[in-house]
């Protein structure tokens, strides 16, 4: 399985990773060699086998009443954000830029 530079660049953009040309070159080769190794999974006939998503004994969902609970202090949360205004995290407008 070979990934070329263009495919690698496409995957990097899907994952929102900006890469240098040197990184693109190196990752294309490395991802191809990992994919070649992974290809072996296709040798097994698993048509009748159910997939396992999680190995735990309980695959149950858990619900709780929708009631307010104590949360981390606002200032401790905001202290980690680079751009804060009036007690909130400031973000760029998404609709204007994609329109």
């Amino acid at each position: 399985m070979q990934l070329d530079r263009a495919q690698t660049a496409h995957v990097a953009w899907l994952a929102r990773l900006s890469l240098t040309d040197a990184e693109l070159e190196r990752f294309a080769g490395q991802l191809s060699s990992i994919l070649t190794h992974i290809q072996r999974l296709g040798e097994l006939d698993v048509a009748d086998i159910a997939p396992t998503a999680m190995a735990s004994e309980s695959d149950r969902n858990v619900t709780r009443p929708d009631e307010p609970r104590p949360a981390s202090p606002r200032e401790e949360i905001l202290a980690n954000a680079a751009d804060v205004e009036e007690g909130s995290v400031r973000v760029r407008a998404i609709l204007e830029e994609t329109a």
Partner: peptide, 14 residues
């Protein structure tokens, strides 16, 4: 081909 196949092989390993 990748994710579901791997989850099925995970069943065999388990």
């Amino acid at each position: 081909a990748y994710y579901v196949q791997a989850q099925k092989v995970r069943t065999l390993i388990k």
